[in-house]
Design a protein around this nucleic acid. Structure first.
Lengths: 380, 380
DNA sequence: TTAATAATGATGGAATCCTGAATAATCATG
DNA sequence: CATGATTATTCAGGATTCCATCATTATTAA
């Protein structure tokens, strides 16, 4: 949302005012003209003018009147979140999750397809197709209604939406994810690393909503990180920001070993459950795992000095067993220990981030000076 | 310079246009109205109106006519960089350097006062006073003309301009730098860590001018880092960003030991000179030093994936002996190795960064909507 | 039915921008 | 030294947009 403020002629001023009206309407509920005028700082008359424009162009719609108040009932206007649809897809090792939402990011349908790390790329892509088709069908939406699609995948992603390198899924390296998905939906397809998108989701709808600088740790079968800096997702020059796990000293690769080394007792398959039940060896293994993770986390924290560290990923359900040790380790290593919290987005975080990526694309078009022509301009 | 674009009434539009005119004039040479109109995108008539306003309020001045062209000679207008002065001060271990510049950042006078790491805080503050007084006197400027002052110091600086912790100068911990300097100059005093300001200087006038994401390494008797992210100085939530040296594994503290362990031969006191002259032990010591530095640098680079790493500080004069090893080490450790370059700002980098800090403050006031009242408003 | 309340609609004034034509200043040339 | 070419400046007219104000309209409460 940071633009160079550049002035211009009167037409541009109207555009700017139309944008502020749109932003005020966006996400919130329907507003009357008087309310809109108050919030935007414009006069009532001008607000009316702007809204008439937006109404004609299809960006806003009239909501029902609210009855039961004294005085003449006011017309109420709302953002036409139903004018288009966006799609967010998480391609993971164990599941493919597709979320279909309206332009407010309100999820209309979610479709989950189970996959397996051992699957080949064709099988996995077929699962992606099924998830997308299911999400569209479930919401009763055709591909033409989809304005933008965000896709999350493991591994490094290049500028064209191709997977440059995936350590967790070797078969996946080199797959042209954007190309494949583009053939299934209309509109632009944006592909990004899953840890980064999970971080984005936290700063959108998660526990990091009010923080400007955030380190997000994806703790699960793989370990990864995503960075929010100054409220924005930080990608890095080569899209490789946050890949601290590659540093051998950091030991994110060997961290998992501690967990794998634990042998389940009879009837218990989950190390975290075992630890809660008092299994000493499980507790110790988890502690060693967290200590390894914490080295890399310290490097991220010392580099950025964030306000908040969020732990997400599969293991965040067992935050009670992780956060204490993590806090202690960070405290030991860092100059200023940030707040440490667990994600509350369950296993939908990554897909929500993908959704947000698609929404960002729509918003950018909304804010592009000279645009705001009409919603249908997306389909051109 | 990044503001939310918010629209408003016609008066606000004029303000925005006045700002774009100011930005166009800023830093560049004098321009005619026709040139200004072309660059700002405004019509000639409106540009004239805006410039008349700015002229009346004292922000711009008429420059001399340029003769020798065909046609009626055009009036030319320039930013009144001479309307005020700013001061940048670097308080280091071995010197205090004060730069006095105009509002374009053109340095008018620089004053250097030698100090010693063993000095007490009173002695050092006295040296600061002398440097400031010398810079003012040298440029023939009174304290009242100084609109803003930036100060660089070693150690962690808190929000009020007090040194929270200085490892290099233990006596310096707790000194209220902003308070002291405020009593010597008029206008606001901004204090910041020296590594951070050196980074700022590189992205302003150094080799990092065209990079958005930069890691700056201060390599000298102390080691430090400063980060430029998305074109802006990154401070962190507690102003402790870049303090990766605190991580014991990183070894920035022991790095110096390698250099100190080298014993000078007869007639040679400088390890870098010795290395150039073929002293094997000196070469090896430097290599070990750089390898230690590189561990922390790798952590910074892996975290941020910057476009560029800049090496500054006292040792950057000997970049020929450092950069090769540093590149090789980064290459070994990082996923994508950024470009590595040496600073070209000699030992004025930190002071220039302090100057930029002061100028940023002036610019912010210039860009604050509702301001742009008159230059003299700074003195109120 | 009337009073109170609050939204809508219409009018006029002011600020700002743009376009285009008339005027002014300088250089080159006969 | 006058004239034309060239470019700047100045001025006038028209258009857009915003704001303030007032009359009108729709609804609830008494």
């Amino acid at each position: 949302m940071t633009e160079e403020l550049s002035g211009g002629d009167l037409h541009r001023l109207r555009q700017l005012n139309a944008l502020t009206v749109m932003r005020t309407l966006r996400g919130g509920s329907a507003l009357t003209l008087t309310e809109l005028a108050q919030r935007t700082g414009l006069s009532r008359a001008s607000t009316e003018d702007v809204v008439r424009d937006l109404l004609e162009r299809g960006w806003v719609a009239e909501a029902e009147l609210k009855v039961g108040t004294v005085g003449r009932p006011a017309r109420r206007y709302r953002f036409r979140a139903d004018a288009g649809r966006v799609l967010g897809v998480d391609i993971g090792g164990h599941k493919v999750l597709a979320l279909l939402s309206d332009l407010d990011g309100e999820v209309l349908h979610s479709e989950r397809v189970g996959v397996d790390p051992s699957m080949g790329r064709m099988e996995r892509l077929a699962a992606v197709d099924r998830a997308i088709a299911g999400a569209l069908a479930g919401a009763g939406v055709s591909t033409a209604d989809v304005w933008a699609t965000g896709v999350a995948t493991t591994g490094l992603v290049d500028g064209t939406g191709r997977v440059m390198l995936s350590e967790a899924l070797p078969e996946w390296t080199g797959v042209d994810v954007a190309g494949h998905v583009s053939r299934r939906v209309s509109g632009p397809v944006l592909v990004e690393n899953d840890s980064k998108l999970a971080a984005l989701a936290e700063s959108w709808r998660g526990v990091a909503r009010y923080a400007k600088d955030v380190v997000f740790l994806l703790a699960g079968l793989r370990t990864g990180a995503g960075l929010i800096i100054d409220g924005k997702l930080h990608r890095g020059f080569g899209n490789a920001a946050g890949e601290i796990g590659a540093l051998p000293q950091v030991g994110w690769i060997r961290a998992q070993e501690h967990l794998k080394a634990w042998t389940p007792g009879p009837g218990v398959t989950n190390i975290f459950q075992a630890a809660r039940d008092g299994d000493r060896k499980a507790v110790a293994a988890i502690r060693r795992y967290v200590k390894d993770i914490a080295v890399g986390a310290s490097a991220l924290v010392l580099t950025l000095d964030p306000e908040l560290v969020v732990v997400g990923g599969g293991f965040s359900r067992s935050a009670d067993l992780i956060l204490g040790t993590l806090r202690a380790e960070l405290d030991r290593r860092c100059i200023r220990t940030p707040e440490v919290r667990a994600s509350a987005l369950a296993d939908e975080g990554v897909a929500l981030g993908a959704l947000r990526l698609a929404l960002d694309h729509v918003d950018a078009a909304l804010n592009r000076p000279g645009e705001l022509a009409a919603p249908s301009s997306f389909l051109a």
